[in-house]
Design a protein around this nucleic acid. Sequence first.
DNA 1: TAGTTGCGCAACCAGATAATTGCGCTTATA
DNA 2: TATAAGCGCAATTATCTGGTTGCGCAACTA
Lengths: 110, 110
Amino acid sequence: METRRDIFQAIADPTRRAILVLIAMQAMTPNALAEHFHTSRQAVSKHLKVLAECELVKPELSGREIYYQLEIGKMKEIDTWLEPFRKIWADRFNQLDDVLATLKKQQNEK
Amino acid sequence: METRRDIFQAIADPTRRAILVLIAMQAMTPNALAEHFHTSRQAVSKHLKVLAECELVKPELSGREIYYQLEIGKMKEIDTWLEPFRKIWADRFNQLDDVLATLKKQQNEK
DNA sequence: TAGTTGCGCAACCAGATAATTGCGCTTATA
DNA sequence: TATAAGCGCAATTATCTGGTTGCGCAACTA
């Protein structure tokens, strides 16, 4: 219960990832979201709670309904963590580029 | 036990993320990795097994030692999932850009 | 006002996780 | 050859997780 919430742990669950995708299009209520999955509204509510705790989602009250909307900013944290790795695969790609360039040069010199 | 391995679930664990970062720099053995954490070699081995199962890491045998190296390619799956969201925050940034441009224009027209 | 709808919260449960401990196997070293 | 080092695997355990059910409360509606 008093588990520290972590954004990576939040997106580990497939249902929560799907919720984020749906909400990205348009803010939705728990009931509306639940219709997209094979689970109860309460289960969706729990997922929303987790997402809200790590600020990936924000509730917006409207009468007795609650529209949850995406907080895109927090998603950047994942992107930030990924950054150094992205750098690595970009470098590898450049290395491959060099190899190809060398091969081409050799062929031209034939 | 025969749980389907998922890359998002794999990076949900902080220790596993740390392992990926360490290995990104240089291939390492389970023992060497364990020294960086407050856990046993066996625990690290289990994490490596999870990472290997979703092809984030690849074992390379060398005598009685096993060097685990990063398989950078799989990391792209995370990047791919993130792509549409990145698009969203880029759009918001552009919208902000538009707002700033409009404000500037209005100021110039004064 | 009475009944319905949309929610969140608490209790409970089965299955998954991470970590420890104890092996046994293989490879290096004295 | 005997001993030590590096591993992976299996069994065990405490904890976490996702799901369901049953409330109770606030807000619409007939």
